[in-house]
Amino acid sequence: MAVDWASSTIEAGGTKLHVKRAGRGRPVLVLHHETGTLDDLPFYDALAANHAVIVPHHPGYSRSERPDWMRSVRDIAVVYRGLLSELKIAKPALVGLGFGGWIAAEMATMAPADLSHLVLVGAMGIKPPMGDILDLAVTGYMDYARAAFHDQKAFDHVYGAEPSVDQLEMWDICREMSFRIAWKPYMYSQTLPHLLRTMRAPAMVVWGDDDKVVPISAGKRYLESLPDAHLEIVRSCGHAVDMEQPEALAKLVTNFIGRE
């Protein structure tokens, strides 16, 4: 399945973003993990078969440069609201992967009427009632990246068994940005669960059944906070559902948001 992706640098409110776009249909904004994103992923391709997919690299992550002024995850959410205005996209579906789920949830609370669907996959952003979010600061680069997978062969398939030094360096750059904006409280907002009650769009909360990064109790708290949400569990899958079971996740998303 060859997908024709277009890359560009788009400025949203003075922040330069590396953005990839492909496909037609309902606009779907896909927000990646705190480990950044590879340029190409089967999950992006699978979604682009049915939807107009937009994949920005978060400011300070992967190919987007770091805005030194940013202090919170909400800052990224506001910049992405600006990106949507810039691209004249109204009512997109938001698909947030892990850390990207936190950004998506913040975006949803900012304009509850300006999204069609919200998909949160192993989302950070809420303090898990049981267990803790895995701490980047005390976990090695490889251990952390591998912890997102149930099947280590899937990790090898995505990153290679011995990821390149460029990859390690990129993980470090991404970590630094995560520390700058999500250090304390670590990887969650204390107000988000309350703000989410303003949501009206339907939401789907997806969790791998072996998520070692964000405890599933956080997913349940999302379900309680979102007025119209349901939970999907992906079997034999870790935190990075998008990288471990891309086809399964794409299918869940397409079934949820519908084809156009």
Binding site: V138, G140, V165, L168, D172, F179
Partner: peptide, 27 residues
């Protein structure tokens, strides 16, 4: 010290970043 604990991301000089991640990954 564990290298990742002694040099958390953003603590060290960006010019040493590459050398540190290689060391931290045991390479």
């Amino acid at each position: 010290a564990h290298p990742v604990w002694s040099t958390p991301s953003g603590y060290g000089s960006p010019t040493n970043r590459r050398a540190f991640v290689e060391f931290a990954a045991g390479r």
